[in-house]
């Protein structure tokens, strides 16, 4: 689980980093985390990737993780050891996937714009603050429902809990489509 403070050196990417750049489709033949980690960010700007270290905090502009729904993208980032991602905004499916697998992500347009590659970044989870040099930036707090998933340790734990409490996999309620 995530501790209360995340510290790391920043490596900065631009807008619209899609999942093909995070993990190119040619590596999707595997679900092996170590193999995915090896190719993390391989499709992104080679000049940035050249200076990136496995424990860097990934910082990006708008729409990080757009494109395909491949969960391999947040999995590769987490498996590589990047402690978190800070971006101006995240694409929706990437956001869900990151929460579901327990990769910490923080939406803060001001922080994402201010941070430069090489900056020492500290994320204070309890205080909802990102600290860079002398500057402090608030990040968007998760809604209650998402905090519950995080508290459970990811979606799978939440599902495990549901299955246990119901004794057996529940049948869906009759929906609107008249089944």
């Amino acid at each position: 689980m995530v501790s209360n403070t995340i510290r790391g050196r920043a490596v900065k990417f631009g807008d619209n980093i899609d999942t093909d750049q995070i993990i190119p489709a040619r590596y999707l033949f595997t679900s092996d985390e170590k193999e995915l980690a090896r190719h993390c960010m391989e499709g992104a700007d080679p000049a940035i990737v050249a200076v990136m270290r496995p424990d860097d905090i990934i910082v990006a502009g708008r729409n990080f993780g757009c494109g395909s729904s491949r969960e391999h993208a947040p999995v590769s980032i987490k498996a590589q050891g990047h402690p978190c991602v800070i971006a101006e905004s995240f694409a929706r499916i990437f956001f869900r996937n990151a929460i579901n697998i327990g990769l910490p992500i923080f939406e803060s347009p001001d922080a994402a714009r201010a941070i430069r590659t090489g900056d020492a970044v500290e994320v204070d989870l309890a205080g909802g603050m990102i600290k860079v040099g002398g500057n402090r930036f608030a990040f968007e707090a998760y809604p209650e429902e998402i905090r519950r998933i995080i508290a459970a340790g990811g979606l799978l734990n939440a599902v495990r809990e549901t299955l246990r409490s119901r004794g057996r996999p529940p049948q869906p309620e009759v929906g609107a489509s008249g089944r």
Binding site: S69, E71, P74, I93, R96, N97, N100, I101, A158
Partner: peptide, 8 residues
């Protein structure tokens, strides 16, 4: 969605 959501 991603794979974990599909699993759920």
């Amino acid at each position: 969605v991603g794979s974990t959501d599909l699993a759920a």
